[in-house]
Write a protein that binds this DNA or RNA. Structure first.
Lengths: 131, 131, 131, 131
DNA sequence: GTGGTCTAGACCACC
DNA sequence: GTGGTCTAGACCACC
């Protein structure tokens, strides 16, 4: 769990986003225990209060639940994973399309580039590591 | 011309990328004068030597040309714009597809999401902020 | 490896030329390790940054390759030697002919002088110091 | 009359060589007046005693003659020009052949390179500047 | 130990 | 004013 902090944005938000990413990609699964606030603060070299704030906000957002004395857990609700994935994919697509348009590409051109990339990957057989 | 520097990567490379971005998007055009090394250093709050290195590398890469005593200019070669655009679009598409795959989406799903996004924009009639 | 720096020309260029000379004459061979930047700087009594610049430019020129943490090496490519020799011999001949012409000698006279010198050496039986 | 002084050799010798060069190339002719010692010292930014030493040695070498109250003149003797040219051409050829041999070229190769260069110049018709 | 990046600041060349 | 070179020295990444 590594975070390169962007100094221009609140760290607690970046922690939340990082954990959402882990959930969306399946790295953290419903029911999994998060690192203790103290441990995470040490690893990330941030103040414990910052982690505390991130965990509290995630609780308010319904992403995790905290059991006093036991720790903080990803809410055991498959829907939460879908939600994280949905949020992430929307952000990704939005960002991508916006950047492509800034370069002057129209709908057809954007689609063409994506298809070309996917096609190129398919030709490499997908076994790039030969596994 | 603002750059949020990623502290994990060389500043001079980020300056180069930023200027390439400006060229790719048409913000800087062939023949345009870049800010003087001193000015850009002041604006970006980096050392003049760092800007000097970025400009020099761009010269070696054939992106700009320098006239002693006059300044540094985007090379007056329309092809340079195409090259910058090509580089940028490849990076964007690559990054996007990789991220989508990391979320578990396959070809069809990736395409579907891009098409959905483009369709949604079309329905908003181009007034993208028309939420 | 000594260089008398010509104060009218950049030191880093003279370092590059000196190393090219070493390669051209076979003093440095493909695969050989160059002195470390710090060592060469100490020997030549210049700043380490100046040597760094020379080494970096040679890397961009394809003359050497750098392995982080290990050192800088003459590119292991026999062709590089030929290239260095070619560059040097062209410069030498050019310079020589230009100087001779400045003294008022024409083609025939230039050739005659070279032939005379070569003939004189031959008579000394190859023991060039045999004066 | 410009001299780039090599800091490793006596300046008065370099002044002598420079003046010999001027004579050899016809820039200074028999009977011509040299600059006054004071003027030359000012132009070259060296001590007047240094120029004094150079002029005195040239007088001993029979290259110039000094007329008290009038100045220093190139000796009015056509032979002096020939001597200067001879000295210079010998040095040039010697230096050139030595450098070529250091690069591993033998007699035939040295001659071939000179002939190739002269031939190339001839093809350019000598009117490189199109005059 | 070896190369890579950056800063602060001096001084130079060309315009 | 604009770019070019160089120094001294700090700190980092990889080995």
């Amino acid at each position: 769990m590594k975070v390169r902090f962007d100094p221009s944005r609140p760290i607690y938000l970046q922690i939340i986003e990082e954990i959402q990413r882990q959930i969306a990609t399946g790295n953290l699964r419903p029911g999994d225990k998060l690192p203790s606030q103290r441990d995470l603060a040490a690893v990330m070299q941030v103040n414990a209060n910052t982690v505390q704030r991130a965990y509290r906000d995630m609780e308010l957002l319904g992403i995790v639940e905290t059991l006093r004395g036991q720790g903080t857990f990803v809410r055991n609700d498959q829907q939460i994973v879908e939600e994280m994935r949905g949020d992430m994919v929307n952000a990704l697509v939005e960002e991508f399309v916006t950047a492509m348009r800034a370069l002057g590409y129209d709908e057809a051109a954007i689609l063409a580039h994506v298809q070309a990339k996917l096609g190129a990957e398919r030709e490499n057989g997908g076994d790039r590591d030969g596994k």
